[in-house]
């Protein structure tokens, strides 16, 4: 369903659509039928059916009212960004641009798996990685050349984030974010800084010798 990060498998997406479109609120018979068709997704379908039932409490009226209040002459920033995403992806797909470039453009738009972490969780992650917040900040901001990271390190990060490995790898491979503020104190416009190698990042983040040994040994 979601294409940008950790999309659910096709069969599960199909089952979700079937569950959502068959009735306003699913009942036991519908859920049982779908679980029989997709026994491997029994738990997910049950969770999804419950979520639909809770969601239906909102009713359509409030959503209708929100739609009716739209000014169709105004394109919001969110819609503008989505259109930009659409045009970029469409261009990449239709022109047959190099697959790697396309994937890179895509993942750069993908959510950052570090972005949902609260300050406490961020520190907790640093602790579990036997690192510190400076180093994890470099991971978050894609300041480390992904080609220099070991596979063991990537896997450890994915495990500690409880995120799929491919999502974490995709994050590291994405473009570094450019500051998007309108005003800058510096004379020049902000630009993307050069990436450090994994070893450089480990050596230059204020980590103890033991922490450095641990991370480089992953």
């Amino acid at each position: 369903m979601s294409q940008t990060l950790n999309a659910s498998p096709r069969a599960l997406r199909e089952a979700f659509y079937a569950l959502s479109t068959a009735q306003d609120i699913p009942d036991a018979k519908l859920l049982d039928d779908l679980v029989r068709q997709y026994p491997q997704f029994g738990a997910e379908l049950t969770e999804f059916a419950v979520a639909i039932a809770v969601d239906s409490l909102r009713g359509d009226r409030i959503i209708e009212a929100a739609e009716a209040a739209i000014d169709p002459n105004v394109v919001s920033p969110a819609v503008s960004r989505a259109m930009s995403h659409f045009q970029n992806r469409l261009h990449a797909v239709t022109t047959g641009a190099a697959q790697e470039t396309s994937a890179r453009a895509n993942v750069s738009d993908a959510p950052n798996p570090f972005s949902g972490l609260s300050r406490t969780e961020f520190r907790g992650l640093a602790g579990r990685l036997n690192a510190n917040a400076v180093f994890v900040g470099k991971l978050r901001d894609r300041q480390i050349d992904p080609d220099t990271m070991t596979s063991g390190f990537r896997k450890r990060v994915a495990d500690e984030l409880t995120a799929p490995l491919n999502a974490v790898v995709a994050h590291f491979a994405g473009r570094q974010p450019i500051p998007t503020g309108q005003y800058f104190k510096a004379e020049g416009k902000p630009s993307i800084g050069a990436q450090q190698s994994f070893e450089e990042a480990v050596r230059n983040s204020g980590l103890t010798e033991e922490q450095q040994r641990f991370l480089l040994g992953l």
Binding site: S2, A82, F86
Partner: peptide
């Protein structure tokens, strides 16, 4: 992300 996901379906 959800809006982007929807556009991805069209792509």
């Amino acid at each position: 992300q959800i809006l982007d996901d929807l556009t991805e379906l069209f792509v």
